[in-house]
Simulated assay, not measured.
Amino acid sequence: MSGISSNHPAVVDAAELTVRRTIRIAAPVEKVWAAVTEPEHISRWFGQTELDGAGAGARGTMTFAERGSIPLRVEAMDQPRLVTYRWNNDDALERLPGELDVDHSTVFTFTLEPVSGGTRLTVVESGFDATSDPAANLASHRGGWEVELDKLVALLESGS
């Protein structure tokens, strides 16, 4: 894909039980912010997202064809620099539809920083120690962040 930024893969920190990926997107912070906070934009590159409001405390779901509906909550927001979500994303644990299991969920934070020609976006997901299989979930989410953030870069840099 000519013209699309080339970014490094996600990294697992086994000691801290986190997944981190930093990418560069040739798009302004405002556009990237909308893409990671507004359900209609998130749904274009990630999972089909619905939230009952905006800002910290908003609740909803992120739905994937292969995984179904995953409960989601906005934990923190500092526009346009940081947004943190909590989600139930552990296939091995049963959950009630729509119920966020705070004790067995992970959190992911997007941090945005303006850079020359675009935005540096970092995602850090933590809380894997509370999942059913931390090593398997870390590996799965590492791959997931690579696929999903590559879709975000392609979407924003294609002018969509």
Rank of each mutant, 00 (worst) to 15 (best):
M1F: 15
M1N: 11
S2D: 11
S2T: 14
S2R: 13
G3A: 12
G3N: 09
H8S: 15
P9Q: 05
A10T: 09
V12D: 04
V12H: 07
D13E: 05
A15M: 02
A15D: 14
E16S: 10
T18K: 01
T18N: 06
V19A: 01
R20G: 05
R20S: 13
R21K: 09
T22V: 02
T22W: 00
I23Y: 02
I23V: 09
R24D: 12
I25W: 00
I25H: 00
A26C: 01
A27L: 07
P28M: 01
E30S: 13
V32I: 02
V32G: 00
W33K: 00
W33E: 00
W33Y: 06
A34F: 02
A34H: 04
A35T: 02
T37G: 04
E38D: 07
P39K: 07
P39I: 13
E40C: 06
S43K: 02
R44D: 09
T49R: 03
L51C: 07
G53Q: 03
A54G: 10
A56V: 03
G57C: 09
T61L: 14
F64T: 00
A65H: 10
A65W: 11
R67S: 12
L72Y: 01
V74I: 15
E75L: 11
E75V: 15
E75A: 10
M77H: 13
D78F: 15
Q79S: 15
P80L: 10
P80G: 07
P80I: 04
R81W: 10
R81G: 14
L82D: 09
L82C: 15
V83C: 12
T84D: 05
Y85M: 08
Y85R: 07
Y85K: 02
R86M: 13
W87M: 14
N88R: 09
N89A: 13
E94L: 13
R95L: 10
R95Y: 12
G98Q: 14
L100I: 11
L100H: 05
V102Q: 11
V102L: 09
D103G: 13
H104C: 00
T106Q: 10
V107S: 15
V107F: 12
F108I: 08
T109R: 07
T109H: 01
T109P: 00
F110V: 04
T111W: 02
T111G: 03
P114M: 01
V115I: 08
V115L: 05
S116P: 06
G117S: 10
G117Q: 05
R120K: 10
R120I: 05
V123T: 14
V123M: 10
V124E: 07
E125C: 11
E125F: 09
S126C: 08
S126Y: 08
F128Y: 14
F128R: 05
D129E: 13
D129A: 11
T131Y: 08
T131P: 07
T131C: 04
D133I: 01
D133K: 05
P134W: 07
A135F: 08
A136E: 13
A139L: 07
A139R: 10
S140I: 04
E146G: 12
V147Y: 12
V147K: 11
V147Q: 11
D150A: 08
D150S: 09
V153C: 06
V153S: 01
A154W: 08
L155T: 08
L155C: 06
L156K: 00
E157W: 03
E157Q: 05
S158R: 06
G159P: 07
G159V: 05
